[in-house]
């Protein structure tokens, strides 16, 4: 079970959190301008990387804040956590 360093609360057990899929996918500002394919790209297509992945997490049983995490999916090492809107601290 992960020990997650919530950027707002500090280290907490994984059971307090909920994973929210890939990070840095911005909802299109003008969805009506998009073709079906472009919209589908936003809607459905997600990466499933073995290695460094950027993810969204929610401290659902804590401060309820969403934040981002950089995780190596091959060994579950959390490389960094950072607030929404911030640039990822690692590449």
């Amino acid at each position: 079970m992960f020990l997650i360093n919530c950027p707002f609360c500090g280290e907490r057990e994984q059971s307090e959190f909920k994973a929210g899929g890939e990070a840095h996918i911005v909802r299109p500002k003008q969805p009506t301008e998009l073709s079906d394919d472009e919209w589908a790209e936003y809607l459905f297509m997600r990466k499933n990387i073995k290695g460094i992945q950027f993810e969204r997490w929610n401290h659902v049983h804590g401060c309820r804040k969403w934040f981002n995490m950089v995780r190596d999916t091959s060994n579950d090492q959390i490389k960094a956590v950072y607030k929404m809107g911030e640039k990822p601290p690692v590449k």
Partner: peptide
């Protein structure tokens, strides 16, 4: 509630 918070915090801060 979770979904609304999600949009509020991440898409429309």
């Amino acid at each position: 509630l979770g979904k609304l918070e999600d949009y509020l915090q991440t898409e429309w801060p």
